[in-house]
């Protein structure tokens, strides 16, 4: 079985993240850029299947600027077999729709049985790209899965809903997206890091995918304005001397919160 894992490079959530006030786009220079944690979990879903099913091949696919190479080397060192990096100037600031048609073309070129994605990225939090990729490919999509079971011809998973949970399934080929409940990512070991340097990482352009860089006839979302909200400041801080509970109650009363 061949599995594609979609990987997005995002700003590290451990640091303050910024938007460029002029363009409204991510300020990629502001902090460290990493493979999104949710994609490492998606990769783990694929790798644990590979661990128990010899002959499974895992390809990671990412769309983004030059710096994506680092995130791709990291996931290769965790155990993916190869990587595809879609790099093209025409993709700067691409919205979810453009991102999805391009990823779908790359997935098609790779020719896979299963696509695994994270349910939503930590920067955009859109959570729409996997479903858009599925629609482009005409495939079923199991979204927001907390648990996944992959078998030879089908995939089954459990997803939370607003009122409980449901079990869903689809025959392969299919697209799935997983939540942070799905798996705990492994750490790359020394051998993995050494091997990753020799694993194939191909860089492809829109022309290589046979795509029109103008995306003629496609609507898109654009940012109109961006404004930073004022930062919160610390208020009163007291050290408990035996009466902090009472003093806190007094504060809540004064603020008319009780």
């Amino acid at each position: 079985m061949k599995i594609a894992v979609l990987v997005k490079q995002v700003p590290d959530t451990d640091e303050e993240r910024r938007l460029d006030p002029a363009s409204g786009l991510l300020d990629r220079l502001a902090g460290e850029n990493v493979a999104d944690e949710i994609n490492e979990r998606a990769l783990e879903v694929a790798l644990s299947h590979k661990d128990s099913h010899k002959g499974t091949e895992v390809v990671v696919i990412s769309l983004g600027p030059e710096s994506v190479t680092k995130a791709l080397r990291k996931v290769l060192s965790m155990g993916a077999d190869s990587a595809v990096h879609v790099l093209d100037e025409a993709l700067a600031g691409a919205d979810a729709g453009r991102t999805a048609v391009v990823l779908a073309a790359a997935v098609k070129q790779a020719g896979v049985d299963l696509v695994v994605a994270g349910n939503e990225s930590t920067d955009g939090r859109g959570g729409v790209v996997p479903a858009m990729v599925a629609e482009q490919l005409g495939l079923p999509h199991l979204s927001f899965l907390d648990a996944v079971e992959i078998s030879a011809g089908s995939v089954t998973g459990e997803r939370g809903t607003d009122s409980g949970s449901m079990v869903v399934s689809a025959p392969l080929p299919a697209v799935i997206s997983v939540t942070e409940r799905s798996a705990e990512a492994r750490f790359p070991n020394f051998r993995g890091i050494m091997m990753a340097k020799r694993k194939p990482l191909s860089v492809v352009s829109l022309a290589d995918l046979g795509m029109d860089p103008d995306f003629a006839g496609m609507g898109r979302s654009v940012v109109v304005t961006t404004s930073a909200r004022p930062l919160r400041t610390a208020g009163k801080k007291i050290v408990d001397e035996g009466n902090a509970g009472t003093r806190l109650a007094e504060f809540l009363v004064a603020e008319q919160l009780v």
Binding site: R232, A234, G235, K236, K237, I238, V239, D240, N243, A244, G245, T246, R247, L248, A249, E250, F251, L252, V253, V258
Partner: peptide
């Protein structure tokens, strides 16, 4: 968390919270 708190208590939740609950109940 104290950097964003309007009212912060440096203390143990297991002593401060029961006292807070008592005070809220007494008021109610």
């Amino acid at each position: 968390i104290f950097d964003v708190a309007d009212f912060g208590v440096v203390g143990d939740v297991f002593t401060v919270v029961p006292q807070l609950i008592e005070a809220i109940k007494a008021r109610a």
